[in-house]
Amino acid sequence: MPLVTHILQVETLWKRMGFDIERFVGYVNEGLLCSICRDVLEDPLQAPCEHAFCTTCIHGWLVHHSNCPEDRQALDASVLHPLYRYMKNDLNRLQLHCKNREHGCDMVCSLESIDRHERECEYGQISCSNAGCPVQVERRNLDSHLALCEYRSRECPNGCGYTVLSTEDTQHNCVAELRTELELLRSEMICRVEEAKHEMESRLDSQRRHMVQKESMLQNEIEELKSQMSRMMSDVRSLLAAERQHRQELEQAELEKRKLPSSKKKYD
């Protein structure tokens, strides 16, 4: 199949990812065009054969092919590398129109700074910030749109404190809204009371279990102390009995000692 036909097929298979060449001012070097989409390189990568591609374009190509789309040399994603510095500098210096040119923006700036400009461009289309609003407006007209947007919200003029959408003005009923809020608050209060009740019951149960454990431990300690006291009393009684026995023995010995002199005289 001819090379040109291959390229045309690729252009139909993948969304154009490069910068539209029609936006650029002056001549653009052929080496700064993507070999696949033929637009000015966006986030470029280069093959060893020096052909350059937009990153999205070449990765999309390599899903179904294993060669360079320009010269058919074998190619794998692992050998792709960033654009040479001199080419990158040439690319960044290219001048192009803002993408919002058709809406009135006449800014022309370098490719290097175009993203920064377009993020802040007053002619850029942005979505309305009001929830539910499908309108897109130019950034410069956003404030005037917000002032009239039917999805804008504001505080109820009757003083109930509710924020209502302009489209809900006719349906808004302060009394009904306040009743609904009261019911929600009541339900929330009941839930909180129940949660507090369960929490207190849980704490009481925990404390009760702790007290029962503590009481059991104290009772065991008391029984142990009683047992120790009983052993001590038994030891004291034994000591007192031994002391009485010892005293009696001493008294007996004293008596016997006293008897010894009279017995000696009798024999003399």
Rank of each mutant, 00 (worst) to 15 (best):
P2Y: 01
P2A: 08
L3N: 15
V4Y: 01
I7D: 06
I7M: 04
Q9V: 14
E11L: 07
L13N: 10
W14N: 13
K15H: 12
K15D: 15
R16F: 07
I21S: 15
I21V: 15
I21Y: 07
E22C: 12
G31S: 12
L32F: 00
C34S: 08
L41H: 03
E42P: 05
E42I: 04
D43M: 11
C49I: 01
C49W: 01
F53K: 02
T55P: 01
T56A: 15
T56S: 14
I58R: 08
I58S: 07
H59C: 11
H59Q: 12
H59I: 09
G60I: 11
W61L: 11
L62A: 05
H64E: 15
S66M: 01
C68W: 00
D71N: 08
Q73R: 09
L75P: 07
A77G: 03
A77D: 05
V79S: 02
L80T: 12
H81G: 09
Y84R: 06
R85Y: 01
M87H: 07
K88R: 03
D90G: 02
L91M: 03
Q95H: 04
N100A: 06
R101F: 14
H103F: 10
H103C: 10
D106Q: 14
V108H: 11
V108Q: 13
C109N: 12
C109V: 10
S110H: 08
E112I: 06
S113H: 13
S113C: 09
H117I: 11
H117C: 11
R119Q: 15
E120I: 04
E120F: 03
E122V: 10
E122W: 07
G124L: 04
Q125G: 12
Q125V: 08
I126S: 04
I126N: 07
I126Y: 00
I126E: 08
S127W: 00
C128I: 04
C133T: 14
C133Y: 01
V135D: 07
V135L: 06
Q136H: 04
R140N: 13
N141S: 14
H145K: 08
E150T: 06
E150A: 03
R152A: 00
R152K: 03
R154H: 14
R154L: 11
N158W: 04
C160W: 03
G161A: 11
T163Q: 08
V175D: 15
R179V: 07
E181P: 00
L184P: 01
L184S: 09
L184H: 05
L185Y: 03
E195T: 10
K197F: 02
K197S: 14
H198L: 10
E199C: 10
E201Q: 12
R203V: 07
D205P: 00
H210K: 06
M211E: 06
M211Q: 10
K214H: 10
K214I: 05
E215A: 09
N220A: 09
E221L: 03
E221I: 00
K226E: 06
M229E: 08
M233N: 05
S234W: 02
S234N: 10
V236Y: 03
R237G: 01
R237V: 03
S238W: 02
S238T: 13
S238Y: 03
A241L: 12
A241T: 15
A242R: 13
E243H: 05
R244F: 00
H246L: 04
R247C: 04
Q248A: 15
E249V: 08
L250Y: 02
E254K: 10
E254I: 01
K257S: 00
R258H: 02
P261L: 04
S263D: 02
K266I: 02
D268C: 01
D268W: 00
